[in-house]
Amino acid sequence: MSKDSHAGKGYGCPSEVPPDHPDMLGEILKPAYREIRQEVSDEADDEENTEGRNWAILLTLFSFLLVQFAGIAMIIWAVFW
């Protein structure tokens, strides 16, 4: 892209002043984690959510053990075959 591709489009002209938004910086810097926490706390009270979380934990543990047993079986197979 050449430096003249923006020529005549008004980019970087000192005569044009960007719009002044005094509250924009405060809006950008306002922390959003409070809003997210409130949304999560409303959903965390559901029993279905905790039940799903319990199943996810059990599935993770089962998958971990399955991988461990498969690794042990492969080592035994490699040594004694």
Rank of each mutant, 00 (worst) to 15 (best):
Y11L: 09
G12C: 07
P14G: 06
S15E: 13
S15V: 13
P18K: 11
P18L: 08
P18Q: 08
P19W: 01
P19F: 02
D20N: 03
H21Y: 14
H21C: 03
P22Q: 10
P22Y: 07
P22R: 10
D23T: 10
M24H: 10
M24L: 15
M24P: 01
G26E: 07
G26T: 10
G26M: 04
E27P: 00
E27D: 05
E27S: 09
E27V: 11
L29N: 06
K30S: 14
K30I: 05
P31R: 04
R34D: 15
R34P: 08
E35N: 15
I36F: 05
R37G: 05
Q38E: 15
Q38C: 02
E39D: 14
E39G: 05
V40K: 05
V40L: 14
D42F: 08
D42A: 07
A44H: 02
E47P: 04
E47I: 10
E48H: 07
E48W: 00
E48P: 00
T50F: 05
E51G: 02
E51R: 03
E51V: 02
G52R: 10
R53G: 02
W55P: 00
W55L: 09
A56N: 03
A56K: 01
A56S: 08
I57N: 01
I57C: 09
I57M: 04
L58Q: 06
L59A: 12
L59G: 07
T60Y: 06
L61E: 07
L61Y: 02
L61I: 13
F62D: 09
F62T: 14
S63I: 11
F64L: 13
F64M: 09
L65Q: 08
L65P: 09
L65C: 12
L66K: 01
Q68A: 14
Q68F: 11
A70C: 10
I72P: 01
